[in-house]
């Protein structure tokens, strides 16, 4: 096929494959080492599930994992809904203050995490918001909103506005028009946005480090503070576990997304 050949750019494939290899090298090393029997973080001495057992025996770590997942899910949900609503308005039409609103939505990206984390901590302490799961969710939602917003907005920008207009003619209310026409069309954007938001929240160290409170340590914060006495290979095991859980979640969301798209 002529078209096929034309879409190919020499070298692109090799770079892409190298990039994928680069992306997976640390993951593979990490997963392999998590099955090591040794005491040292980096050395290999026989296969065992020893460190996984330690994770399951460690109540603090389990609590940290649970906290991380609760925070990430809640923040993702809140941020994705808010971002979708905002994107619907900002992708269409001109109005006064639009530029300012767009800037506001982009602000969390621009503010370095360390600055935001400290500012939010000072603020929470000053107004008397108790540090805990709620405070982490509040802060994470702010920081992951742009991650959710950008792909949704990009998707909306790429849509032909005629669809929405036709939908508005076809269906009675804007809500139904949205559910029947716009939502399916922007679904890939929403899924991508939610995924990015989830990643952002789950991986966040800096903001959580500052705003976590009693009983609300998240996994990254837990790992970050495992320093005075040194990191044990348990970290390898728990990261691999997290990776497996995430992979499972991702696969489910991918399959759901496909079903939604084909409907």
């Amino acid at each position: 096929m002529r078209a096929d050949a034309l879409w190919r750019f020499p070298g692109a494939r090799s770079v892409a494959l190298a990039a994928v290899a680069f992306l997976y090298l640390p993951i593979v090393v990490l997963v392999l080492l998590s099955f090591s029997d040794g005491d040292s973080l980096a050395e290999w001495s026989g296969v065992s599930l020893r460190w996984y057992r330690e994770v399951f025996d460690n109540a603090d770590m389990q609590r940290a994992i649970r906290n991380s997942l609760v925070v990430a899910c809640t923040a993702t949900l809140l941020a994705t809904v808010a971002a979708t609503m905002a994107a619907l308005v900002l992708a269409r039409g001109q109005f006064r203050g639009k530029r300012a609103m767009e800037a506001l939505l982009g602000l969390p990206l621009v503010v370095p995490e360390i600055v935001g984390g400290i500012a939010i901590l000072m603020f929470f302490v000053l107004v008397g918001i108790r540090l805990g799961i709620v405070s982490i969710v509040l802060a994470h939602t702010v920081f992951v909103t742009p991650f959710a917003y950008l792909p949704i907005r990009a998707r909306l920008d790429g849509l032909n506005p005629a669809f929405a207009e036709a939908a508005a003619d076809l269906y009675a209310g804007p809500v139904r028009a949205f559910l029947r026409v716009t939502l399916p069309l922007i679904w890939p954007g929403i899924a991508a946005g939610a995924m990015l938001a989830f990643i952002g929240s789950l991986g966040d160290v800096v903001v959580s480090y500052f705003v976590s409170g009693p009983g609300a340590t998240t996994l990254p914060v837990y790992i970050f503070s495992m320093v005075r006495m040194g990191v044990t290979p348990m970290v390898n095991a728990v990261s691999s576990l997290l990776l497996f859980i995430s992979l499972a979640l991702l696969t489910v969301s991918y399959l759901l997304g496909r079903r939604y798209a084909s409907n």
């Binding site: 809904v81 308005v89 900002l90 609103m101 969390p108 503010v111 000053l126 509040l138 939602t141």
Partner: peptide, 26 residues
């Protein structure tokens, strides 16, 4: 205008309250 306000409300209020205000404090 009202529709815009309702749809934009959550995201902007959230960021305003939990980022702009803290930054002002900073």
């Amino acid at each position: 205008a009202l529709r815009r306000a309702v749809l934009l409300g959550p995201a902007t209020l959230w960021i305003g309250l939990f980022l702009v205000l803290p930054l002002t404090l900073m």
